[in-house]
Simulated scan of single mutants.
Amino acid sequence: MDKDNSAVFDENSESRLYVGNLDMRITEAALIKMFSPFGKILFEDFLWHTRGPKCGEPRGYAFIHFSTKEEAKVAKEKMHGKLVCGRPLVVRFSRDKYLMEMGSKTGNLSGSGSNKSNLFGNGSGQMNRSAKIAAIKSKLKAMEEEDHDTKKQKRS
């Protein structure tokens, strides 16, 4: 759980969990204690506000990297929705958040099954390179259309 190893771990790793909706009373030690029964924790990243009026306070979420995908899966299944300090934990694979954001921004994940197979071409749940490029192009096109519509309204 050495923070110097953070560059070694891939954000989209299959054994990395996002843990959100943390109460401000939850400490790093408490988080590690809650998740350690499910397997070996290689690394945890407990996020803090670094500036502004909340500087030094927890941000309310963290990342936990287990040694195997199976350990992470069990931890996710057991801890997601569990009440801690009166709040239900949100636990998911960290790569899932990235994929959900891409889908909501581009609309690609809500379409037909053929769109989904293009996004998840390798079957592992991670987007392939061409799908990422397509998502970026789609977002740029939407932004250009929005900008064009705004300019039309200003002329009227």
Score class of each variant (00 low, 15 high):
Lys3Glu: 07
Asn5Val: 07
Asn5Pro: 00
Val8Ser: 10
Glu11His: 12
Ser13Trp: 00
Glu14Lys: 11
Tyr18Glu: 03
Gly20Thr: 06
Asn21Cys: 09
Met24Ala: 13
Arg25Val: 10
Arg25Glu: 15
Thr27Glu: 04
Thr27His: 04
Leu31Thr: 04
Phe35Thr: 02
Pro37Gly: 01
Pro37His: 06
Gly39Ile: 01
Gly39Asn: 03
Leu42Phe: 00
Leu42Asp: 06
Phe43Val: 01
Glu44Asn: 14
Leu47His: 10
His49Ile: 02
Thr50Gly: 08
Gly52Met: 05
Pro53Gln: 12
Pro53Lys: 07
Cys55Leu: 04
Gly60Arg: 03
His65Gln: 15
Phe66Thr: 02
Ala72Ile: 02
Met79Gly: 06
His80Glu: 12
Gly81Gln: 09
Lys82Tyr: 06
Leu83Ser: 13
Leu83Ala: 11
Cys85Gln: 07
Arg87Tyr: 04
Pro88Met: 08
Arg92Lys: 13
Phe93Cys: 01
Lys97Leu: 15
Lys97Tyr: 07
Tyr98Thr: 15
Met100Leu: 07
Met102Ala: 11
Gly103Trp: 01
Ser104Leu: 14
Leu109Met: 11
Ser112Phe: 11
Ser112His: 11
Ser114Cys: 03
Asn115Gly: 03
Lys116Ser: 14
Asn122Tyr: 09
Ser124Pro: 02
Gln126Val: 10
Met127Leu: 15
Met127Phe: 04
Arg129Ile: 09
Lys132Val: 13
Lys137Phe: 05
Glu146Arg: 13
Glu146Lys: 15
Asp147Lys: 15
His148Thr: 12
Lys151Ser: 04
Ser156Gly: 09
Ser156Gln: 12
Ser156Tyr: 14
